[in-house]
Each structure stands twice: as C-alpha cells, then as structure tokens.
Design a protein around this nucleic acid. Structure first.
Length: 430
RNA sequence: GCAGAGAUGGCGGAGUGGUCGAACGCGCACGACUCGAAAUCGUGUUACGUAGGAAUACGUACGGGGGUUCAAAUCCCUCUCUCUGCGCCA
C-alpha cells in the first residue's frame, strides 16, 4: 500500500507508475481514491463536530442531574439522541467510504524503482550478472527424479499413498544432503551477521490477511480445520508478522534475520503440481532471510541480499545468474525484485531457485511496522526486504544435475562435507 | 482442557458510569541552581486522524471486536493473551 499523500499531491506520478506496469485498467482507481478521500474527510469533519456536540451535551446532562434539574436533563437527552441518530448515519457512510478507499488503495501498486526494466510479463525479464561458467556435461544428464532414484534417495510411490501427489520421502544420503544444505546455509547467514530464527509454522488469519491478498491466500494457504490457524507458505509470513503493529526502536534497526521453516502450499495457481518430481510440491523446507531497515538503507540491503544467495550457490559450485524482474512481472507490493536462477545442464537453461525483493514501505504501511526516527521524533514506516537463502528440494535439482559424474556418483563440494560426515560423493545404489 | 485472577501511557501503578487522555512514581527532554556535576526545584513529555502557515482546535483510542446508556477505562457479550492451581503431553 502506498502513501495516500502521494496520490493527493502527485496523482500523475502514481498513474505513470500504473502505466509502466501495464495495469491501465487501474488508472480510474486513482481518481476514485481522490474522490473517496475528499468524501471521507468531509464526513469526518461533520462527524467530529457532531461528536464534539455529543460530548458537551453529555457533560451538561451530568451537571443537570447533579443539580437535580431532572426535566431539563430529560430535554437534553432527547436532543442528544437526535444528534446521535445523525452520527450513526455519518458513521455508516464513512465506514463505507473508508472500506472502498482501502480496497482501492490496496490495488494501487507500489512505486517501482527507476532502474526496473519496463516489460509486460516474465518473458521480458532481463538477465543480470552471471556467476560461474554454465558448462554442458560430456554425457546426457537424466531427469532429476531418475538421478534421485539411482541414488536410492526418494520414494514418491509411498508418498502418494500416504499424502497424495506433491509430497515425497527423501532417503539416506540424499535426505542427509538436504539437511546439510539447510544447515550450511544457516551457518552461512549467521556468519554474515544475521540472527537465526525458528518461527511459528502456523499463523492466525489476521496475520495471513496482513501479509497477502485474499486471492493469494485461497491459492496458497492450508487452513487448520476448526481453528483460526493456517500453515505458513513461507517463513516470511511469520517473520514479518512478528513486527505487525510495532514501533521499533531506531537503534534496533536494521533487523537482519534468517529463518528456517517448512513451507506448505496448495499450488492451486497457474501451474499446479504438474512438474514431475520435486520441482513444485506441497511441502518443502526453506532457509529465508528478511531485513527491516530504515528507508535510506533498503537499496543497499537489496544488493547485499541477492548477492548473499549468489555467494552461497557459488560456494557450492553451482552456476547461477541474476534475473531482473520487469515492471509487469513485479508483484504490486514490490519496489524491485530479482530471481536467482541456477543452471540446469539437462535443460541447458536456468531455472528459479530464489527470489529477492525490496518492498520499501508498502508492506510496512499495510502491517503498521514503524520505527521512531530520532532526527524528527516521528514514527515512520520502516522498509522491508526478503530473500530466499535456499530451498533445498528445488535446489537439489540443480545440485544433482551439476554435480552428477559420468559413473553415476554425485560430487559433494568442499563446503558441505563437514555436514555430510566427511563424504565427498554420493554413490549410486546398484 | 478445567477453575480462578488479570490486560490501563516508554515502564510501574491508581481509577469501578459523567468534570478521566487518565492520579502518583520512575524514565526521558528542557530550564534554574553550580566553576562543573550529583542532589534539588520548575516546566514539559501517548499515538492516530481532520482543519490550519503555525500556535492550536476538534475527534478517536484504556488488549481486539460487538452491545447497553444522553454518557463506558468502569456494566454486559465475545475473542485473544498473561499469571496461579489442577489435568494432559515430546
């Protein structure tokens, strides 16, 4: 949600931003917001003076009662009742205007960064930097499921029986590798100065509706029957929710946190669980990083964050690239975003393994995350950023494809060996 | 899960229907005293919204939501959380 003052002062800028995102159907909302805002303010002024009247009448009635002037008090009561009827009407109108205003404000996209490439959809995203050479293998690389099976590392048949499509049993060294990647990533982020956090894996509906739109909620979130609880789709939900409605001490910023959690997703959206294997599943585990900082610091944090992910993947000897999200592909809350994509030697292309976003104050305004600015003494909205450190099931695809050897074994890079009991490779099951 | 008690400003804590945005204390800011400091004294010190250039004025908010009343921190309903005891459980 953007600052309404921006719409009051500079509606053209907001409209231009909407055009850049190819959401021209929303242009009318800007004028509607200006009208609603004016209406709301007019209603508030009348309401306020009516309420002032109610207060003074009530005060007067109290006085009259004490002086024993019962008749006069009764007369004043009637007057007050009349006034209150009018207040009720104004309040109803005002609530209606405010609701509509909020709905409109929620669909106005955040102002995007100047350097976001302009484009309609994901086909116009722009490749940024490339890290490590994306090499082709001298032999044919099998589908990741076949590699997993050759290592004795997965049982999808049983998972389908116990839980349905979109779940897996990981086994043996592959399961260990999965945990090793998470643990290594955790330590990697701790070394960068981040605070490790294990958050709640279920959150209440008010938190859910704070962090996502109703449509997103329908398509992603699993609800616990008979409880006001949802399974988190990412730890960002509970990590950001932690600061809802808070006024943070300026000295406590930046908050730099890295969190572990399982993630649960319905994946009801465009693709569904169609990809074979562990690319898109209902349950996976993820190490995440979030930053809450002062506005002037969010740009530099954004650069640092996505580079951490790159550094992590490079240390595991997996080629990656940055893919810069274009204006049309950018979610409404985002100021700027990029994906980190890993190289797939089988498909001979890159695929998404993480996503880094700077939401500036849009998410913070929606959730009421503020800090006390010591210069101005005012409470101001903080900036929020989030980024994937690593989500092992999906990154395992890149890992297996890149580190598969001709003999069917899988090479384990140096940095992971201490988490793998010293092993330098995983051998296929004969 | 059951029973009881409770949730008030940055913190502690009073207030049980009207003059309460809220006593008192702590903290914080400014000023006086002082060569300087401590102590002391004085003044100020919630947030949000609307109007205004500003001083300011008005409104809203006493865990969240709803209700009763001319009037709610105070009465009623409900939800959440905390404490105590019992129960249950890794």
């Amino acid at each position: 949600m953007i600052d309404i003052n921006l719409i009051r002062d500079n509606p053209e800028l907001v409209k231009e931003n909407i055009r850049k995102k190819f959401q021209d159907k929303k242009l009318g909302l800007v004028d509607e917001i200006i009208a609603l805002d004016g209406k709301k303010r007019a209603l508030q002024q009348e309401g306020d003076s009516r309420r002032a009247q109610r207060n003074s009448l009530a005060k007067n009635i109290g006085l009259l009662m004490r002086e024993g002037k019962k008749e006069e008090a009764e007369k004043a009561k009637l007057l007050s009742k009349e006034n209150n009827d009018r207040i009720a009407v104004i309040e109803a109108e005002s609530a209606e205007a405010e609701n509509r205003l909020k709905t409109c404000m929620m669909s106005i996209p955040n102002i995007i960064a100047d350097d976001v490439p302009i484009g309609r959809d994901d086909s116009e995203n722009v490749q940024g930097k490339v890290f490590l050479e994306a090499k082709e293998k001298p032999f044919e690389v099998p589908y990741h499921l076949d590699i997993l099976e050759s290592l004795g590392g997965i049982d999808l048949d049983a998972a389908r029986r116990t839980s349905g499509n979109g779940f897996y049993y990981l086994l043996g060294d592959v399961a260990r590798l999965h945990s090793a990647v998470l643990t290594y990533a955790r330590d990697f982020m701790i070394d960068k100065g981040f605070t490790y956090c294990i958050p709640p894996f279920m959150i209440r509906s008010d938190v859910v509706s704070g962090v996502m739109s109703f449509e997103e909620m329908e398509g992603m979130m699993y609800k616990i029957e008979g409880e006001d609880l949802y399974l988190i789709g990412t730890s960002e939900h509970s990590m950001i929710g932690r600061f809802m409605g808070e006024v943070l001490n300026e000295a406590s910023l930046p908050q730099t946190l890295t969190s572990y959690s399982p993630c649960f997703r319905k994946e009801k959206g465009a693709h569904g669980i169609e990809e074979r294997g562990i690319y898109r599943i209902h349950q996976f585990e993820k190490q995440e990083m979030i930053v809450i900082c002062k506005p002037e610091e969010s740009d530099s944090w954004y650069e640092k964050l996505w580079n951490y992910t790159v550094e992590l993947f490079v240390s595991m000897e997996i080629p990656v690239r940055q893919l810069v999200c274009c204006s049309g592909d950018l979610a409404d809350l985002k100021y700027k975003s990029c994906d980190i994509e890993a190289w797939s030697p089988r498909q001979k292309k890159y695929f998404e393994v993480g996503s880094c976003s700077n939401l500036t104050d849009a998410q913070a305004r929606r959730l009421g995350i503020r800090y006390k600015n010591s210069q101005t003494g005012k409470n101001e909205y903080a900036h929020t950023l989030n980024n994937t450190v690593v989500a092992p099931p999906r990154m395992l695809i890149a890992f297996l494809e890149n580190h598969l050897q001709k003999d069917g074994s899988v090479y384990i890079p140096e940095v992971l060996r201490k988490y793998m009991g010293g092993k330098d490779k995983i051998l296929p099951k004969k």
